[in-house]
């Protein structure tokens, strides 16, 4: 298998991947049955009574209620979350499933905490970088790049 054939195969796979990237975004609305934040921001009242699944950042915690901000297509909508509480701080990220009520409130049936605070997100990024660096160190101990053929080959035979 020469380098040109490998590059051609890589180009084919990359085009297929690019096709998936475009196809996913072009069809995602049809596969997500809930109103999106930019639709709620544009005309909230027409969606009252509908069920929604909102991914949002916690802007404030007010007693048992949360205030969340959710963004799509560059538009942010702010919603009050009532009916259920979650152990989360301002800056955290939650998924809220529930019914849209008047005055931009969502009556939650379920809240799932993604990050319980803004710091939790940075912690995830931090340990992910540690994981990536650790992997590279371990990988390089086992495999080396042959610069003549531009392939990875096992170290020590």
């Amino acid at each position: 298998m020469n380098t040109w054939k490998r590059l051609l195969l890589a180009a084919l796979l990359l085009s297929a991947l690019g096709g998936l990237f475009v196809h996913e975004d072009a069809t995602s609305d049809a596969r997500f049955p809930y109103p999106e934040p930019h639709e709620l921001a544009a005309d909230y009242d027409s969606h009252v009574g509908e069920t929604a699944l909102i991914f949002g950042t916690v802007a404030a915690v007010d007693g048992s209620e949360l205030v969340i901000e959710s963004e799509s297509e560059g538009v942010t909508v702010t919603l009050r979350v009532t009916g259920a509480s979650a152990a989360v701080e301002s800056g955290g990220v939650v998924q809220v499933y529930g019914e849209l009520r008047p005055e931009r409130a969502i009556l939650a049936k379920s809240i799932v905490v993604v990050n319980d605070s803004g710091g939790a997100e940075w912690y995830k990024y931090g340990v992910s970088v540690v994981g990536a660096l650790g992997f590279l160190v371990v990988f390089r101990r086992q495999w080396r790049l042959d610069r003549e053929t531009w392939t990875l080959e096992a170290r020590n035979g």
């Binding site: 998936l20 990237f21 996913e24 975004d25």
Partner: peptide
């Protein structure tokens, strides 16, 4: 339209 989400699907993993 463009989204990286397929990287986290079976199709993306295979490619």
């Amino acid at each position: 339209p463009f989204s990286f989400e397929p990287l986290s699907t079976l199709g993306g993993v295979l490619i």
